[in-house]
Design a protein around this nucleic acid. Sequence first.
DNA 1: ATGTCC
Length: 411
Amino acid sequence: MKAPADSAALPAHARLVARDDVWLEGNAVQQLARVAALPGCVRAVGMPDLHAGRGIPIGAAFAFADRVVPELIGGDAGCGVRLVATSIGRMAPDALERRARQAMDDDPLAECDPRAVFERVWERGARGLAELDGVPEALARLAAAELEDSLRPSGDASPYRAGYEGALGSVGGGNHFLEVARVGALRDPASAKALGLSAGELVVVAHSGSRGLGGALGQRWGGAVLEGDAAEPYLGELAGACRFARANRLLLAYRMLRALGASRASTITGGLDLTHNDVAREAVGGELAWVHRKGAAPARGSDFTVVLGSRGAPSWVMRSCDAEAGLRSVAHGAGRKMGRSEAREKIAARYRRRELVRTELGGRVVCDDPALLLEEHPDAYKPIEPVIESLVEAGLATPVAPLVPVLTVKR
DNA sequence: ATGTCC
């Protein structure tokens, strides 16, 4: 059994955003304290989904005055979530499941030259897909409508030209997924409207990252600590990996939109894309600092952000409060309650196999990996409500609308 | 989280 958190162990410039009713693992808080104590760290914020990683906790943001620490981003650079809002009201569950399976088998880039795919995506991100020869027209239109990726130019691509384009449009393992969800009762109708969300309509949610490419980036920069101009090559390569990850999510969303019959522009009413693992230069305490987000969603300006639930609990679209006290970030999800091996044992004992592919809220699950089906069961996750309330009470974001999972695809 | 290897 995991030990509970002791927040007294934290230094003054570190903070936990979690109500008393949110379970936090002691080891995760120790890791937060350890990173906060690194030279140059001026602020550290642990979110209510904080959990222990390999030395670096996940579900946190760290501000460093004068240096970039690649280890804090880790091997899943650019991981994040894309939301696409549609005007589709309903679809028969059997048909949706069948068409989703089909969409996962079809390769939308089959007609494209793999080298051209890599180059366009590295330099131009999701928008680069629109410029490819052989890309389906509906995907090209979707990609062309993308906002320009971050202004930072991509760095040297040469260490990453190794066949990673084959991973584009793939979900991956762990907590990554591709989902159809239904918009629930609106909490902030004006904000929902601005984002193109209407109660009862379907949305697509893609949570995935840069796959093996991010792993290569993490390996290459290992334990480096980068000050001044020395950070530029890493930041350029990180920008390329983030563009790759965004394009991956666009392709995933396209696949599911096609399954929904919603890939026409007129049925797409809005959307957003958020990166959970990234570094940005932002104002902290009146000075510019390098804000490292590690499993944390940006919540800047009055933009929208998303906190992922589990496949058995709603995700929440929220409106950012631009709160510097939370390093302009929010939790990226509900956070795990059980470790993976613990989940495999307990959940296998609790349910029959056929029960595992249905959820309490009436959703379906498509997952061909029996271990992953257990590891990612909703019972392995914390309840989402105290997580959302923690963010609201801390003044980081306000609720806009819940997204209730209808069909979740893994791997 | 990952690809790869046991």
